[in-house]
């Protein structure tokens, strides 16, 4: 059974016909030609297909496209500016060599953007000592929160440095704006 849905993908409104069985990931990759999110396992076990869905990090392999009619999807491709300028998270990944083969990378980047937002909102994690305190941008917090994105090349040290750098930059920026 086919269904027509509309998605906003990286700022562009796209209407697409999908099979009711089509996952959001396959709708993006196979129907819309948006291959920025990657398929590493197709079963929610690797994180390569992570996008920001209505602003939150989300797996697309465990979502049916038809159930997400009207959703706003931001892939790693949509994080960079229209002029091609990299998002601070992407720039930090590049500088710290937080990627090797590059296959998990778009998912890592989207996840990192989500992680920084979750920390900013004060969400605790499994490693937070105090559930009610503001979590810090510590190594332990970032590692735990990024654990849903596997990297077989083992680029975790670079990814950690990149996420922290991007988070600290954003924090400084917010501080400056707050002061001004």
């Amino acid at each position: 059974m086919d269904a027509e849905i509309t998605l906003t993908v990286d700022g562009q409104r796209r209407t697409v016909t999908v099979d009711t069985r089509t996952t959001l990931l396959d709708a993006l990759r196979e129907r819309l030609g948006v291959t920025n999110p990657k398929k590493g396992c197709d079963h929610g076990q690797c994180g390569s297909c992570t996008v920001l869905l209505d602003g939150r990090r989300h797996l697309t392999c465990l979502a049916l496209a038809v159930a997400h009619d009207g959703a706003e999807v931001t892939t790693a491709g949509g994080l960079s500016g229209p002029d091609g300028a990299l998002h601070p998270v992407q720039q930090a990944f590049l500088e710290h060599d937080g990627c090797q083969c590059g296959y998990c990378t778009p998912g890592q980047v989207c996840s990192a953007v989500g992680v920084l937002d979750e920390i900013r909102q004060g969400h605790a994690s499994h490693v937070s000592e105090d559930l009610e305190a503001e979590p810090g941008l510590t190594d332990e917090e970032v590692r735990e929160r990024m654990s849903g994105n596997l990297c077989r090349c083992g680029a975790y040290a670079g990814i950690l440095a990149a996420v922290k750098q991007a988070g600290e930059q954003a924090g400084e920026q917010a501080g400056q704006e707050g002061a001004a």
Binding site: N36, A76, L79, F93, L94, C99, G102, P106
Partner: peptide, 8 residues
């Protein structure tokens, strides 16, 4: 690297 961090 740019192609990789953007998913392109």
């Amino acid at each position: 690297g740019v192609e990789k961090v953007t998913g392109e």
